[in-house]
């Protein structure tokens, strides 16, 4: 029977030049629910779909605020994301205390990238099992970065990670021309539409499973969770995948009855 001999650790290349442990870590992202990020000229938005492990359990945390100008959305192992976000908070606070400057987004992203890379080159270490979308505003404007456990980071205008994220990416690619110049509200709605497109056929966006965050030039990072998401879903209208479905109000109502 075939057995892969090159995936015991993250320091051994396969003869094809691959590092399987790192690739498996990238797979962990796809196990997580979808997170979408996008930027306009003035704002950066993160939206994400939360899952609850059990019917009686609470929903997971998908978006974490780092500072007043910066936040992350995650897909994959939430504990790993917590460790990374705590590190980012430290970096952010140090920058404020030592230089009186909100940390530049690219710098804090590179800092976690370096941490992640170390894990891919030391025997006995495990790569982070989480992907992050980092959205924030600094002196050079709004930014969206994607972070991967391999240590790779890239800046995007729009990006999606997690399960079924390809549908969200497809939406973003199509809507890109529109949302780069859009205002705050339109940008969030584009994000929700992308998120909506990645839903499974029988699922819909509800106040319980949707989370939204916005940060803009001169505007602090704001997280909308629970009931606060309701207003956005109402503006969105259709809360099911573009294959058609019910309106936002109906969805909110059905939520009330089901819980």
């Amino acid at each position: 029977m075939f057995r892969n001999n090159y995936d015991n650790d993250s320091v051994t290349f396969s003869p094809q030049g691959r590092i399987f442990q790192v690739e498996y870590a990238l797979e962990a992202i796809k196990q997580g629910s979808v997170a979408v990020g996008l930027v306009s000229k003035t704002h950066a938005v993160l939206v994400a779909l939360k899952r609850n492990a059990e019917e009686l359990g609470s929903y997971q945390k998908k978006i974490i605020g780092i500072d007043t100008h910066l936040g992350v959305a995650l897909a994959g192992l939430a504990p790993d994301a917590r460790v990374l976000s705590n590190f980012m908070r430290q970096q952010s606070m140090s920058s404020r205390l030592l230089y009186n400057r909100p940390v530049p987004i690219s710098r804090v992203v590179n800092a976690i990238a370096n941490k992640a890379q170390v894990n891919t080159q030391h025997y006995g270490r495990r790569p982070y099992g989480v992907g992050l979308l980092v959205a924030g505003v600094d002196e050079t404007g709004p930014h969206l970065w994607e972070f991967q456990p391999s240590g790779m980071v890239l800046e995007y205008k729009g990006a999606a990670i997690g399960a079924r994220s390809q549908s969200a990416r497809t939406y973003l690619e199509r809507a890109f021309e529109e949302f780069v110049d859009s205002n705050r509200e339109e940008l969030v709605l584009h994000g929700l539409k992308a998120l909506r497109d990645s839903l499974a056929q029988d699922k819909e966006l509800t106040t319980a499973n949707t989370t939204v965050s916005v940060v803009g030039i001169g505007e602090n990072f704001k997280l909308y969770d629970g009931d606060e998401v309701g207003e956005w879903l109402e503006k969105l209208g259709n809360v099911q995948s573009s294959r058609g479905g019910r309106t936002g109000e109906e969805a909110v109502e059905s939520m009330d009855t089901s819980e």
């Binding site: 030592l98 009186n100 400057r101 530049p104 690219s106 600094d138 050079t140």
Partner: peptide, 19 residues
Amino acid sequence: YQNDGHHLRASHIYRYLSK
């Protein structure tokens, strides 16, 4: 060296020196 479009300005340098 970061070459990322960010530059330290007077208030940043001042805070650093004070510290």
